[in-house]
Structures are given as structure tokens and as C-alpha cells.
Design a protein around this nucleic acid. Structure first.
Lengths: 336, 336
DNA sequence: TTGTATGCGTTATCAG
DNA sequence: CTGATAACGCATACAA
């Protein structure tokens, strides 16, 4: 990675075209230039294979046309979708994406923020877990799934409504004794409301329920212990489960089936996220689908919003229920 | 996205510390500076919250510490893994990743190459499908899964060996009449060799086989037609199938089961890629696993290789077979 | 209209 | 060792 790109400058183009450098700049930026001059410049650009140096431009204009996305990883399908749709929304606006993975390492997130600020990105979109993350001001910052303060806009799916919807659906499909299990971080973020919504609807429907919240130091074995504790004579006490994520739902279903408990015959299961096999095929579990595309689009359009003071500090986008084979829907025909 | 980041410059730091700007630069870049001066500069940096402007630096040094990755998307789990591991390899070297999605749109790929060249990225890693893609010279360029010329290093899994391995495993597990189905682009790339290896091993093992190659204008319905054509009395003619990707294997298995054909009892199925549920749980099908992490690491280390003339033009990394529930392995205990 | 000249923030050279 | 200054490539204000 040594050789410098033997690239030409506006000066070279100007010389080649026999015009001044300012004229070249105008042509490159699509400003009005007399026809014959424009032609000559374009010819010279073509001939030399000239490419604008965006570093020079950024230094001058203080604008990089680049946005940073900070996210734990891209292997989790939900994050992968987010990455994809955010890039699409940026690309539509002729922006590039500087992608940074925190790998869930709390100390990494402030480092990444510092890094991308040094790159003078025009904005930052971040999905973070660091407890006391310091949000820089002076740079447009949008967070996903986590509310910091009114001055830092947060975009999320309507987690509370999603929790309610899960309870309602389980009830509608015949469940009378359900549980919510979440496997998340200790900090309070938007996804925490999945439980609140679930509980709210359970109470309203007068449906018996239990909840289990696991913190970071726990792993799936703790979920297993919990479920074992609620099994009697090879049957689970619950006839419905709502899991914090599709991934947890998937793991749980496998565990239940290994223990001879049928899904959805004995226990109906609903997850959260809306993950599809290979990103594009069928849904892996019955689930509350996050409107990922809309979340991405909202993040980007808020970032580009001209007046930053009229931006709402929290935007919750509507979710929907999706059959995925792990519930006993009346009309599961509406598969996708 | 209006306000400029009210950020300080080296000049401000120099003034604050009462030193010359050159001294600040040296401190920032970790060069030797007399202790008392260094302290004063560091204090000033701290006080002002100074952040290097990498655009200025890039303009001066012609180095951005940024590498572009051009790939169709991040929703396909294989691509998602690639994105993840490439970023990790870059991050280790203190490089950032400019991520660009081509969405399989042939015209988009040259546009993206031009864009990232304007950003003066230090290198490009690309997984592309555009038939006559023009690889710029003057900038380090590594391709994945597709060989262009000896001057453009290509990194891939050992597709030929993978094809052979699939045939060998199917044979070992009792298959005697197998088929390979691939659903790919018309251009010849490394994954095309999956078929060659498969055929090679079938001939060697004297195992009856058939192959089906679908071009871009086809879709899964054509695979269905093919399979229907090879069904008699509710049974498939083949007792083993090797699919070009795990995704195709997954679709095929679903189709077979819908038609009352059991997997792996009636037909054993092997895919290619090594996709896991949710990126980290169990393998979705029995498969030939691509060494994604090693591919990523190789791409990056080749990009950073000091002498670009000693770089091999094609690197094929070893694959392995992985049980995933769709074959009848002797010792399927070695699950993961 | 076009051309010229300045400065963006940084690094590196070179004289002190 | 430090400090002043030129140059990187570009956009723009201003002069022609």
C-alpha cells in the first residue's frame, strides 16, 4: 500500500484545457460556465482521468458527505439490515457510510466516536450500549433504540406497542398463562419497554403472566434453568412465551423441542425483530416485526433535517405482527 | 446538518500552549518532543478538546487510513460476515472502513469505485459481478471470489476442493446418485469451480451425477421444475444434492419437504458457505464452510503488503465440511 | 463572464 | 531541540 495514486489536480486540468483553475472548479461542481470553456474542461478531465480530491474539498468546505454508523456488528441479522438500509438512505442522498463496529465493547464506543469526529463526518448514527456514553455536541447525532436526552434524537420501533401486540396475539390465539423473557443489558433503553407493553396488555386482558430479565452476566443456560423450573411432568406451565428477540426465541424453541415440548402445539412463541432466513426468505419465528427500513430512513432524514430544533427527541415507528410458524394463528395463510 | 463543528486547530493548541505549531504536530503524531513542551501541549489539547482534522492530514500525507469495501449487500449472511471480519482486520491496523453496497446492480459498481477513489481511500476490497469491470491501477485493489488478471490479487475459498469435498462426503454417507445445482451469474468466477470439483470427485468415485446451472434470468421456480422433472412416484431420483449456496440448500430442503421427501432420510443435502442461524448459533444445513475470517484477514494483509509484486494473484483458502442436520453422518455428534 | 489569489489544517523542511 | 513557512487540492471572494 505504498504507491501514491498518480492522480491529477485541477491545476493539471486547467493547464490541459488552457483555462484557469477556478473555471475547472466550476465545471466540476456543475456551476454555470460558458459552453466552449465547459467543453474544453470536460475534454481535459476525460483525457487526464481527473478525479476530485474530496479531502481537499472537505478541508475547504468543512463537509465530507460521509456519515458514520456505529453499531455492535453486522453478523446479527437485525444489525445487518439496519446497516443495509441506512447505507441505502445515505446513498440516495449521495453520502457515503463510514461503518464502525463496537463489538459490544463499552470502551470501544467512545473511541469510535472520537475517530469518526477526526474524520469530520457530517453526522453520526449510533446504536450503543456503553452506560455513560458521552454524546459530543457540535455534530449531528442520532441514536437508535436508546434515549439519552431531548437534545439527542432517538429512533426506535414502538417497543411498548410491540410488547402489547405480542400479549394480545398470544391471548387471541388461546394462551392463558404466558411469560416474557428478555436477555439484555442493564441499562434502560427503548427495548426495555417491550416488557412494559407486554405486562400492560396482560393485566388488561387478565392473563396470567411472569417475566424474566437476564442481565449481561447471564447466558442462555439461565433461561434453561428458568424454563426447567417451570416444567412439570414434561409440560411447561406456560402456554405462551414472548421472547425479547427472535434470536432468543429461536434458541428457546430449540430447547423446548429438545425437551419434548411442541411448538406451537403445546407452547406458542413470539419473538421480536422480524428476522428472515438468509435475510430474504421466510420468517424464522412468529414475531413482532421492526420497521427496519423506516427506522433507517428516519435516522437519515433526521440527520439531514435543516432545523435541528424542530426534530422530535424520540420517534417510535409502528410495528406489526408476523406469523412465522410458532403460533397457532386462525389464518396463518398470510405467510410471506 | 448545518452547524460546523466548532473545532479547534493545531494553531489554537499552539497558542494555548505557548509553543509553535510544528511542536503540536509532533506531539500529536507521537514524535520526540522535550518533556516540558510535550506536557504543555498535551494540557492544551485536553483543555481545548482538540481533535486532529484527518482531512488536512490526508491532503498533506496522501493517506487516509481508510479502505473501501464494495459488496452487494449486508443482508446476505455470508456478506455480513465478510463485512464484519474485514472491518475487524482493518480496525486492528487502525484503519476505517468505507462500506459501499452495489445491490447487485452492475452499473453501480464502477460508480462506487469512482466515488471511493475520490475519497482517496488507501485501498479497495471488492466482491463484484459487473461483467467488464474496469479495475483502476494506481490504487491497491483486492477482489474476492473473482479473478480478473495476475495484477489484481484475488482471495477466495478453495471452491474446487469444496466441490470435491461435497461429493466425497455425500458418497461417504451412502449416496450413489447425486446432483449439483447452482444458481449464479453468467460470468466465470471462483465459485464456478464448485461444480468442477464436484464433477471431478463424482467421476473419480464413479458416482452417477447430474448438474444444473441457472443463470441470472432464472429463479427458484426453475429449480423446482428441475426437481419435479426428477421425481417419480413421490420419490426423487437423487439420493444426494449439492447446492451452490446454503441459501439455495435451505430453499431446496423446504421444497422437498413440502413434497413429502424427507431430508436427510430420503435425500441428503449439502450447501456451501457455512451460514449459522443469527450469525452465531447452529449451522442451518450441512455445508462446506468458507473460512470467512481467514478470507477477510488475507484480503487486508495483502492490501497492506509492502511489496505488491510478491503478492500471489490467487489465494484459495481451505474449506471444511460441517454437519448441519441435512446429511446422515456416521458421527454427527461433533455438532457445534 | 473568466482569472487570480487566499486560506482551509496538516506535515515536513530547514534555518535557528 | 524548536519555530517559521511552504505545500497538499480545492472553493470562493474579488479583480479584471
Amino acid at each position: 500500500m505504498k504507491e501514491s495514486q498518480s492522480t491529477h489536480t485541477m491545476m493539471d486540468v486547467a493547464r490541459e484545457a488552457g483555462v484557469a483553475i477556478g473555471t475547472v472548479s466550476k465545471v466540476v461542481n456543475g456551476k454555470k460556465v460558458a459552453e466552449p470553456y465547459r467543453i474544453r474542461v470536460e475534454k481535459a478531465i476525460e483525457k487526464l482521468g481527473y478525479q476530485v480530491n474530496k479531502n481537499g474539498r472537505a478541508l475547504r468546505t468543512n463537509q465530507t458527505n460521509t456519515v458514520a454508523l456505529i453499531i455492535p456488528n453486522s453478523t446479527n441479522p437485525y444489525f445487518a439490515q439496519l446497516v443495509h438500509y441506512i447505507d441505502l438512505a445515505l446513498a440516495q442522498r449521495n453520502y457515503s457510510m463510514l461503518l464502525c463496529f463496537s463489538e459490544y465493547r463499552p470502551k470501544r464506543e467512545p473511541e469510535l466516536i472520537q475517530m469518526v469526529r477526526q474524520n469530520r463526518v457530517d453526522g453520526i448514527i449510533a446504536l450503543t450500549y456503553t452506560p455513560d456514553l458521552d454524546i459530543p455536541n457540535g455534530i449531528p447525532f442520532i441514536t437508535i433504540d436508546r434515549f439519552f436526552s431531548v437534545s439527542v434524537p432517538c429512533v426506535a420501533s414502538d417497543n411498548f406497542a410491540g410488547g402489547r401486540l405480542a400479549a394480545q396475539k398470544l391471548h387471541e390465539f388461546g394462551c392463558r398463562n404466558v411469560a416474557f423473557i428478555r436477555f439484555g443489558s442493564t441499562l434502560t433503553n427503548e427495548p426495555s419497554k417491550r416488557k412494559d407493553g407486554f405486562v400492560s396488555a396482560c393485566l388488561e386482558l387478565e392473563m396470567a403472566f411472569d417475566t424474566l430479565l437476564m442481565t449481561e452476566d447471564k447466558d442462555f443456560r439461565d433461561v434453561q434453568s428458568y424454563l426447567y423450573g417451570h416444567m412439570h411432568d414434561g409440560r411447561l406451565d406456560f402456554d405462551g412465551l414472548f421472547l425479547g428477540t427472535d434470536m432468543l426465541a429461536w434458541q428457546t424453541i430449540r430447547f423446548l423441542r429438545e425437551n419434548g415440548i411442541r411448538v406451537p402445539e403445546d407452547v406458542q412463541v413470539i419473538g421480536y425483530d422480524g428476522i428472515r432466513a438468509f435475510g430474504s426468505l421466510e420468517y424464522l419465528v412468529s414475531t413482532i416485526v421492526q420497521p427496519v427500513k423506516e427506522i433507517a430512513e428516519t435516522c437519515v432524514s433526521m440527520l439531514f433535517s435543516p432545523d435541528r430544533h424542530s426534530i422530535p427527541s424520540l420517534v417510535c415507528l409502528p410495528v406489526r405482527y408476523q406469523y412465522g410458524g410458532t403460533t397457532r394463528d386462525q389464518n396463518a395463510a398470510e405467510d410471506n
